[in-house]
Design a protein around this nucleic acid. Sequence first.
DNA 1: TTAAGTGCAAACCTTTTGCTGCCCC
DNA 2: GGGGCAGCAAAAGGTTTGCACTTAA
Lengths: 153, 153
Amino acid sequence: MSDKVEQNWKEILHAHITKKGLRLTQQRLLISEVFFEEVQHHTNIDELYQHIREKNPGIGYATVYRTLKLLTECGLATSMQFSDGTRRFEPVTDHHDHLICTECGKIMEFENEAIENLQDEVALSFGFSLTSHTMELYGVCDGMKNQGVCSVQ
Amino acid sequence: MSDKVEQNWKEILHAHITKKGLRLTQQRLLISEVFFEEVQHHTNIDELYQHIREKNPGIGYATVYRTLKLLTECGLATSMQFSDGTRRFEPVTDHHDHLICTECGKIMEFENEAIENLQDEVALSFGFSLTSHTMELYGVCDGMKNQGVCSVQ
DNA sequence: TTAAGTGCAAACCTTTTGCTGCCCC
DNA sequence: GGGGCAGCAAAAGGTTTGCACTTAA
């Protein structure tokens, strides 16, 4: 997985903000720093918000939501709806899918070219031009199978 | 795809209701009939509710939600969160995945054993025991590509 | 008869929006 | 200095819940 975004998000964000005549505020910078450099991928709003408030207790949910929306417009972030209804945000890196432990909540990322090729075939057979997909695999991870406890959040 | 559920839902529902000491009310029967026999699969609450109200204008959203929850507990229904955030309900039939036209909203169902096998492999390689998955392919269907109009809702 | 279910409205939860004062450019 | 922005609170949208009345068994 590339860390292009981790390296370049400041440039990309700055370019977008300049182009649109927006402003790079302290809040936007802080929220972005925490989002890209501090919390784990697949964070939810609450977790992100807690981390942000540790550094600036005055920030409100609205600003976090608005900044996440801004990052999404830059192509730097994306949100996912998991099938349990929770919404999570992650930095945009290379495309990947998710493998989720239903016992401990651990989320792994993976890519599989063979599956992607088959998806294209399926779409073609229905006359569809594929533009994107989501795939989530749910199961039980090693840690939970062996010990009933998993050290990874 | 089997239509086991379409044939048997009354029996299954009745058995569940009896076992749990619940009651087969007019509302539950009406909502289930509309859900299993009248609306298309992948219905959303509003569409379902409109159809139901045509037959019994007095029914409220709460009853529809409560009945859908009951059907889910029986294993007769399931709900899905699509990546655009909408929630849809469908009768439980054989497992399948979804192919969705982003232009006209058409939803196709498909199964692909080769993909499922690869999913198992991926999960195993991470030490996971796979229990379920969701996969949604987004693209543009034939109708929309050719005419810019699609006759299928 | 009586406990479960319905309908209604209110509560809830997550996300968005309007407004007023603030601050980046 | 002026317009975009933050913070707050209120609104919105979707789903659940409490309560008093109704109804299936």
